[in-house]
Amino acid sequence: MAAIDFSEEIPHLRATLTSIEKVTDLDALTRTIADLEQQASAPDLWDDVENAQKVSSALSHAQAERRRVDDLSSRIDDLEVMVQLAAEEDDADTRAEAEKEFASIRKALDELEVRTLLSGEYDERSAVVTIRSGAGGVDAADFAEMLLRMYLRWAERHGYTTKVMDTSYAEEAGLKSVTFEVDAPYAYGTLSVEGGTHRLVRISPFDNQGRRQTSFAAVEVIPLIESTDSIEIPESDLKIDVFRSSGPGGQSVNTTDSAVRMTHLPTGVVVSMQDEKSQIQNRAAALRVLQSRLLLLKKQEEDAKRKELAGDIKASWGDQMRSYVLNPYQMVKDLRTEHTEGNPQAVFDGEIDDLIEAGIRWRVGQQRQNAED
């Protein structure tokens, strides 16, 4: 392995950070933080609990975003000092430590740089993710639960807040479907590349003959609606059913009809909510997710119309976007980007940043190519 030429690499790190700072617009971010701090210090802030939580969350995220940039700047300064020290004292251990820190900074910069590629209309929103088991019976239901754990672990690694909003359990094991929210800046833009059909190949733990089984699960990612979005749904367009929330095996977790199933009659879109304790809360949550889905549906229809007018009806995503193979070999492969990971267990433990980053870079490349055609 070639030695790192720090005289070239450290200026390159600084140039990359400067580019990120320009795109991030630190002055605007500083003004946003000041404005949110002023709102957060208002004596009547908690008179409106929902707004107070929104302000507090936005402030926390903005401050964390600023710290990420400032910390990287400090780490590059410290790295330069470490390199000078290693050269002056001809200290191999210090140089090895500097090389390790360089790799860590490079990775952090790459992650931050990917954020600058998220410029879609809804990319900065929080995300609502729905996972549904597909073909493959009980293995597919188990796979859906494995994917849920994978995404929740990923969010936990990044310190993102998550909330499971609705769960439908399969009879034998696993999940028929699950919907959860990831509350973080750019959660939608980041996770939107995870949308599509996921495929698992393994020796089935549910097959007493130990045969290999292929199963599928679908992942849907939508941006979370905001109060400023204009998606009005007439009451006459809604069919609302109430029922009792239930846990695995049909065990009742609620003795009242608090769960809500909301159907949008013109489109057939159905949303169920059972996480909240009251019917009113579940109804509000269901309406918010329904508005989010209709907002995305509207945008997809507009995009499809534009493509049709331009004579481009080429699909952007294939039916199957990623394979997780546990037998006869161990590999996770994204079929769009060709990015592979050799440790599926680490992926299922939430180490999916490289897969997501490759997906975002691939998507940007596809958008640029389409713009040129």
Results as ranks from 00 to 15, higher is better:
residue 213 Q to H: 14
residue 326 L to M: 14
residue 105 I to V: 12
residue 48 D to S: 02
residue 339 H to Q: 11
residue 107 K to A: 11
residue 92 A to D: 06
residue 103 A to T: 14
residue 19 S to V: 00
residue 303 D to M: 08
residue 293 R to N: 00
residue 196 G to L: 08
residue 15 A to D: 15
residue 24 T to E: 08
residue 127 A to Q: 08
residue 171 E to D: 14
residue 185 P to F: 08
residue 276 E to G: 06
residue 268 G to R: 03
residue 126 S to W: 02
residue 57 S to C: 12
residue 212 R to D: 03
residue 107 K to H: 09
residue 68 R to N: 13
residue 8 E to C: 07
residue 54 K to D: 10
residue 316 S to P: 06
residue 331 M to V: 03
residue 324 Y to M: 10
residue 254 N to D: 13
residue 97 E to C: 05
residue 345 Q to W: 00
residue 238 L to K: 04
residue 307 K to Y: 06
residue 182 V to C: 01
residue 97 E to M: 08
residue 149 R to W: 07
residue 345 Q to A: 10
residue 32 T to I: 00
residue 363 R to I: 02
residue 58 A to P: 04
residue 304 A to V: 07
residue 67 R to E: 15
residue 227 S to C: 01
residue 14 R to Y: 12
residue 122 Y to G: 03
residue 271 V to I: 14
residue 270 V to N: 04
residue 367 Q to V: 10
residue 113 E to L: 12
residue 99 E to R: 02
residue 83 V to K: 05
residue 187 A to M: 02
residue 68 R to F: 06
residue 143 F to V: 04
residue 364 V to K: 12
residue 317 W to E: 14
residue 53 Q to K: 14
residue 355 L to F: 07
residue 340 T to E: 13
residue 225 I to E: 01
residue 145 E to K: 10
residue 225 I to D: 01
residue 89 E to I: 06
residue 149 R to K: 11
residue 27 D to V: 13
residue 75 R to L: 07
residue 279 Q to M: 07
residue 309 L to D: 12
residue 287 L to E: 14
residue 151 Y to A: 02
residue 245 S to L: 04
residue 255 T to V: 00
residue 176 K to A: 10
residue 199 R to L: 04
residue 331 M to Q: 13
residue 2 A to R: 12
residue 355 L to M: 12
residue 356 I to W: 06
residue 87 A to S: 13
residue 84 Q to E: 00
residue 370 N to A: 13
residue 301 E to F: 00
residue 258 S to T: 11
residue 342 G to A: 11
residue 47 D to G: 14
residue 201 V to G: 03
residue 308 E to N: 05
residue 279 Q to G: 09
residue 152 L to P: 01
residue 227 S to H: 08
residue 19 S to R: 15
residue 164 V to T: 09
residue 281 Q to F: 07
residue 197 T to R: 13
residue 174 G to T: 13
residue 47 D to F: 07
residue 123 D to I: 03
